[in-house]
Amino acid sequence: MNLIVFALLALLAITAVAIAKLRELWAVIMFTGIYSFLSASWMMILDAPDVAFTEAAVGAGISTVLMLSTMALTGKAEEIPRKKSLVPLFVVLVTGATLVYGTLDMPHFGSPNAPVQVYPDPSFVERSEADMHGLPNVVTALLASYRGYDTLGETTVVLTAGIAVLLILRRDDEEKDESAQLAGNKTS
C-alpha cells in the first residue's frame, strides 16, 4: 500500500515538473489530464471515491476538452521567455516552504485525535441512519438534508457560473446561424 502511495505521489510530482518544463501546449494539456487521473487515483487511496469520480470526469475529461478547444482558438506553443528571472523561483520556494512549515503542525493522516474526527459531534454519524429513515450514506445525508441550504446555494453558484460563461462567450451571430440551420432543416 505504501509503495502505491509513494509511486503515485512521485508520479504527481514528475507530471507537475513536466507541465512546467514543456512549451508545447498540446502536450501540456495531455499532461494536465494525466495529472488529474493520478489525483483521482490518489483520492481513491484516501477513501473518497465520490471526489475521485468528480476529479476524473471534470479534471481529466471536461476541462481537458475545454482547454483543447481554447487552444484551437489561440496558439499551439507557449512563448519562450527571453531572459531568465529568479523572482518566480524565489516566490515558489518561499510559498512552498511556508506550506511545508504549515503541515508540521497538522495531525497525522487518519489520526483519531484530528479535529476533523473530534470537533463535529460524532453522534451525527451515529444518528444519521435513523434520521434518514435507513439511508446509510452519511455524506449524502449531510450534503442534501442536514446542510440542504448550502447545497441549494452551491447549485445556484453552478447555474450562475454557467450563465456568466455563456454571457461572455456566446455571440449573437451564432444564434442566427442556428436558427438558419433549423429553418433549412425544416424545408429540406
Binding site: 471534470v58 471536461i62 476538452v65 475545454l66 478547444s69 434520521d131 434518514m132 429513515h133 435507513g134 439511508l135 449524502t140 445525508a141 442534501a144 438534508s145 440542504g148 447545497t151 441549494l152 452551491e154 447549485t155 453552478v158 447555474l159 457560473a161 454557467g162 460563461v165 455563456l166
Partner: peptide, 24 residues
C-alpha cells in the same frame, strides 16, 4: 427524507449536466 434527498440530488444533477454541456 429519502424522497427529499432523491429530489434535490435530481435537481443538482440536471443543473450540473446542463451547465457543463452548455459550457462545452
Amino acid at each position: 427524507q429519502h424522497l427529499g434527498i432523491f429530489l434535490v440530488e435530481l435537481g443538482v444533477g440536471i443543473t450540473v449536466t446542463a451547465v457543463m454541456t452548455m459550457i462545452f
